[in-house]
Amino acid sequence: MKTHRKLVSLYLHAAVILGLFLAQFFLPDYLYLAVTRVMILSVFAIAYNILFGYTGLLSLGHAMFFSVGLYTAGLTVYHLEWSAAEAFVSSIGVGLIFSILLGAVALRTSGVAFMIVTLMFSQVFYLGTLYFTTYTRGDEGLVLSEGARQFTFLFASFDLSDPSVRYVVAWLLLSLSIIFCYVIARSRLGRALVAIRENETRTQMLGYNTFMLKLVAVIISGTLSSISGAAYVLLFAYAGSSFATIQYSIDALLYTLLGGAGTVLGPVLGAFLMFFMIDITSEYTSAYLLIAGIILVFLVMYFPRGILGEVRHRWLQWLP
């Protein structure tokens, strides 16, 4: 029975990954780019969920990790003329360093103080992107040239300005993130993180070093966020200060809450739903963020588990 359920859950996740791959053949043109973009944002949401959903740490500063990756890749390509691959790898390294530093400092606090501290560090980073406007060009942002976005892999050369290449790259990244998150959720590490979320003192009493475990969660989540940021700038060729605003941290929170915190596919579902809801409302009004506000209040009041969280609670207890 148990192995049977495990297989079902494996098939389910594999089906989602396969479905996203097949979707590219059926999507109309205007959705093609949108889905590519949402897949990258889903990677960001999955990263956020590892910290918020599994470990129970609510960060309001994940826009910083996203834009650390975004700017590392963007600035090195723009100013130093690095290749896309070099920029991508270096942004992983910088994201790692940032996560370690921020985690080590911010994890000295907990609860409300943790939210405010992460918010403030993120705000400092945002103001920094405005202050060093000679390099980042602030709100106006950097636009990468087409030539800078070609890379060779196994002797074949790819062009990231080609929509179908972009789709496949985004899909690949999302698939790897889903698999990664699935493996973590099933691993001993994932269970220890959930234990911290449920009761940190008790986990400590059982002999776990909860500070180290939380630090590991921040590092995984922060680095994966940086990766999604780097992918965003390399695929869509634009890096601006707006990506570092609180807005983006809240978006990640919103996707996770809507889809279901602490589920592997929840953030992906939340990102897709939110994107299309906002897409539809923005046809009628410029105040499309209104819908984000209403959904936030609604979720936290009546639906705190989110969609997949509710599904798991009622029907599918085995959902990771």
């Binding site: 105040a287 963020l289 209403i294």
Partner: peptide, 22 residues
């Protein structure tokens, strides 16, 4: 509850701000 109220007041923030924008 601290975390829930923070998320809810973020929601209220957007609702007020966007209503004023409209």
């Amino acid at each position: 509850e601290p975390e829930a109220t923070i998320v809810a007041t973020i929601g209220i923030l957007y609702i007020i701000q966007q209503t004023v924008l409209m």
